[in-house]
């Protein structure tokens, strides 16, 4: 399963790679990383219909996670990827907005990786 992680923090990449080391080695998951909303859209345009799941932060400089979600739902109506939003603790505004715009799930920081792993395995 190809998963695209969108976050402006570059350390997210090594964190995910270490957290999902076993799954990556066993080719259960395949992670790609984008460090901004724009980069994510660019990646999706280059790899059409490859990405199954998107994990996106909401508060990012430039394009926000909400805007990214809106654009994805508009530009990729065929084979729509699952979108899971991640944001800071207890931001109910963003939660409601994301759900309204068609997010499939919502996670709060700090990310509970055990929970995330279960959710990802369920989507498989």
């Amino acid at each position: 399963m190809k998963i695209l992680v969108v976050d402006d923090e570059e350390d997210v990449k090594s964190l995910f790679e270490q957290k999902f080391r076993k799954e990556i080695r066993s080719a259960q998951f395949e992670f790609s990383f984008a460090f901004s909303g724009e980069e994510a859209l660019h990646f999706m345009a280059e790899h059409p219909s490859e990405v199954v799941m998107i994990l996106s932060d909401i508060n990012m400089p430039g394009m926000s996670g909400i805007e990214l979600l809106k654009t994805i739902r508009k530009d990729f109506p065929a084979a729509p990827p699952q979108v899971m939003m991640i944001t800071a603790y207890g931001d109910s505004n963003n939660h409601d907005q994301a759900m309204k715009l068609g997010a499939d799930d919502f996670l709060t920081k700090p990310v509970n990786f055990v929970e995330l792993k279960e959710k990802l395995l369920k989507t498989l």
Partner: peptide, 24 residues
């Protein structure tokens, strides 16, 4: 708190994953 939360999350996550790595 908002400003501290993100770096703190990294500290917690990386230390947790390091424990796992130690086991491995």
């Amino acid at each position: 708190a908002h400003e501290i939360q993100n770096p703190l999350n990294f500290v917690n996550n990386f230390s947790e994953v390091s424990v796992e790595l130690c086991q491995e």
